[in-house]
């Protein structure tokens, strides 16, 4: 089997526990993400999701193990890996537009100022920010609008890998729904590979091609890789009617509610790879096949 686009190999993170000892957050975690895939990682707080995210972004170094993207080892942050942070991380002294042009100008130093502005305005419009709004400071925007700016900044740079760190965690449920739709829309028009952290099961099912489930820490493991067998394009109102929706959802709820605890803390020497899970009620038998080729989503559909 050829290596996936993004390959996480035997990643281990150990922190000092403050009492002279060590705390292993996760050990020898290994998984892959294919090009153009939308992968969501679900797990309880403290299982090391954010640590994995920071390592992928290049903002943190793992204790051991490597991350390879397109065959090259990741070291340090790069414009090829865009990040949308939970707290938006907009620069408050710049206007909305400048926050986006800031990133675009860094990505394309050879572009003229007009080109940068045009490109940035286009991506802001894609997330529904047009007109006078783009000249406001982030402090004059609502939380939802700020996160839209952050998403526009990330997409405008066309990174090879987009990392979303609980991007909707700080938003109310209604705003969250709207921006999820916008994220799906803007993502649908690109070949963007996305890796996202969330706590929200419904959000994960709506957005993901595949959900990685993590057990509780310490010694957290990426235990399962659940394929979302609901065809795209999806909307929040139609996916709930799909026969696979509740089957998948129940599986995830059971995992997070019970099995994440049962499976936790199992120290092992073997490489920790997620077990592929496929739940599909539309075919007669519910099967669990590791190597089933998944139909890749159609771009621009």
């Amino acid at each position: 089997m050829s290596k996936p686009f993004l390959s996480i190999e035997e990643l281990t993170q150990v922190y000092p526990d403050g009492k002279g000892g060590e705390l292993t957050v996760f050990e020898k975690a290994s998984f892959g993400v294919e090009k153009g895939e939308f992968v969501v990682i679900l797990g309880h707080s403290g299982c090391g999701k954010s640590t994995i995210m920071n390592i992928l972004a290049g903002l943190a170094e793992p204790t051991s193990g490597v991350v390879k993207m397109d065959g090259y080892e990741v070291s340090g942050p790069s414009l090829d890996r865009g990040v949308v942070f939970q707290n938006y991380s907009l620069l408050p002294w710049l206007s909305t537009l400048k926050n986006v042009t800031f990133g675009v100008a860094a990505r394309h130093p050879e572009w003229s100022k007009a080109q940068v502005v045009e490109h940035s305005t286009k991506f802001l419009a894609m997330v529904g920010l047009e007109g006078d709004v783009i000249h406001r400071k982030p402090s004059q925007l609502s939380g939802g609008m700020r996160q839209r700016v952050s998403i526009a900044r990330a997409f405008a740079n066309h990174p090879q890998l987009l990392l979303l760190d609980e991007p909707f965690g700080a938003l109310d449920a209604l705003t969250r729904g709207t921006i999820q739709d916008e994220l799906l829309k803007i993502w649908g028009g690109t070949e963007q590979t996305v890796f996202m952290i969330t706590h929200d099961i419904d959000e994960a099912i709506l957005l993901a091609d595949r959900i990685l489930l993590m057990t509780n820490g310490p010694f957290a493991r990426v235990a399962e890789s659940v394929e979302i067998t609901i065809p795209r394009p999806r909307t929040r109102t139609t996916i709930v009617d799909h026969p696979n929706y509740y089957a998948i959802r129940n599986h995830l709820v059971h995992f997070l509610g019970e099995r994440s605890k049962e499976l936790a803390g199992q120290k092992g020497d073997e490489v920790n790879k997620p077990v592929p899970v496929r739940i599909d009620k539309t075919v007669s038998v519910s099967e669990s096949e590791p190597e089933t080729p998944r139909p890749l989503r159609a771009v621009n559909s």
Binding site: A57, P77, L79, G82, V83, F85, S89, A106
Partner: peptide, 23 residues
């Protein structure tokens, strides 16, 4: 977070100092 924004945008030390840390 703001320093991380600069880092993920591959800003050099001097640019980070002038465009992120100074403001």
């Amino acid at each position: 977070d703001w320093v991380n924004v600069a880092r993920t945008h591959e800003l050099g030390h001097l640019k980070t100092a002038f465009f992120v840390i100074l403001p």
